[in-house]
Write a protein that binds this DNA or RNA. Structure first.
Lengths: 220, 220
DNA sequence: CTTCAGGTGACAGGTTCCCGACAGCTTTGA
DNA sequence: TCAAAGCTGTCGGGAACCTGTCACCTGAAG
């Protein structure tokens, strides 16, 4: 899951970023509105956490433009102005939720989870596929009753495949969803993760299917 | 849009109900947990507004059971201001949003709108022709209930024929539509794809008709 | 019957994928 | 602070599969 954090306060940005990273998310941070605008135009995210009080820039303006350009990510707004007007305005402009500062990181995490779940249509926190149980809330996986520790990349890959179970996911989509913007992921690397994940899931008879030229797919 | 309101305080339930009715929603109100459980088991809603503090019943319990049974409606939780824990738990159990009491009805409306807006973007367009089911989003095809793996070219060809079902598609159009920008496709190659595709579709009694001198056509 | 568009088996590249080996990097634990 | 363990990603050989040409066959139209 890719998340963009738009926050000019470095300390706060750092705290948010590490909280999200702990949740196995791929987090990118930008510190001002222009940068946010640019990156939102060129890259795809699952969720955007945006501070409304950016120096010399209106967060709502960025949000509005983002939606007008067809941006589909979930947007969580951080705001200090806790006036009702701004809240309603935020949601009607296409934000999906907001938090008023100061807030608790635990609550941020819960909201992020809820938003991401909403987006992928995963309603129940636990998803079972054969002998595989994937808990999107606790972010844990178990196989044949045994807990399974996955490296971050493999975990993210599995999550993506599960959230699109029954659909083909292209190698490029996988690469995008695993990447941070300081680092690209080659198609070859994707193949490798698939290979490693397959090896782990083999004991439970779960297979990731290759659809040549199109991508991969986890069957339900 | 059908909305279920689960709220034991009659005055509040009334206020919510009339606010939502003003928004052209069909609102049902129940006042206790058992009733809520029952109606959620037997009827479908687009959205559920649920107070967590129900007399002698845990709202979270109802929510959990609802999700476990595959309930897919959006759920908006109402909770007293100081119970951060409940909010976090609620979101993790599959609620989509919450409001802390007391709240303004204007804000409730905004959130309901946001949630319903979310919900409407969730179906993949499947096209069925006889025993053939074609899902262009999932990029999957199934025939007689069995998934069918098609090579890229054949998949694209089928997509083209389906999108113009009932119309003649010329060999040239097919060649153009399949070509990569670096490579042209000979008429003979097109004939070959048609031939291969026909062989696969034969089991389902689906035939691609030849219109001599003009092209091909998939009948509905 | 002749002609020619279309159909199809076989085969030779060409792609795409798979995965073992390895090296650089990060995290963990003492 | 240093070593060990684990994670990440590149390389490359080999396997599996796709693609499109050739050559020959079939069947329709005149």
């Amino acid at each position: 899951m890719r998340i963009l954090v738009v926050e000019d306060n470095a300390a706060l940005a750092d705290g948010i970023s590490s909280a999200l990273t702990r949740m196995e998310m791929a987090v990118d941070v930008v510190g001002d509105g222009t940068e946010a605008d640019n990156i939102l135009r060129t890259q795809e995210f699952n969720l955007v956490v945006m501070d409304l009080n950016l120096p010399g820039y209106d967060g709502l303006e960025i949000l509005k433009r983002y939606r007008q350009n067809g941006g589909k990510a979930q947007v969580l707004i951080l705001t200090a102005r806790d006036t009702l007007n701004d809240r309603v305005k935020g949601l009607d402009l296409g934000a999906d939720d907001y938090l008023t500062k100061p807030f608790d990181l635990v609550e941020l995490e819960a909201r992020v989870r809820a938003l991401l779940r909403r987006q992928s249509g995963l309603k129940s926190p636990e998803i079972a596929i054969g002998e595989l149980i994937f808990d999107s809330v606790a972010r844990r996986v178990s196989l044949m009753g045994e807990p399974l520790d996955l490296p971050r990349r493999e975990f993210c890959l599995l999550e993506l495949l599960i959230s699109r179970a029954g659909q083909v996911v292209s190698k490029e989509q996988i690469a995008d969803s695993l990447a941070n913007f300081d680092q690209d992921i080659s198609p070859n690397a994707v193949e490798l993760y698939i290979s490693r994940l397959r090896k782990r899931l083999a004991v439970a008879n779960i297979s990731i299917k290759t659809v040549r030229g199109l991508g991969y797919l986890l069957e339900k």
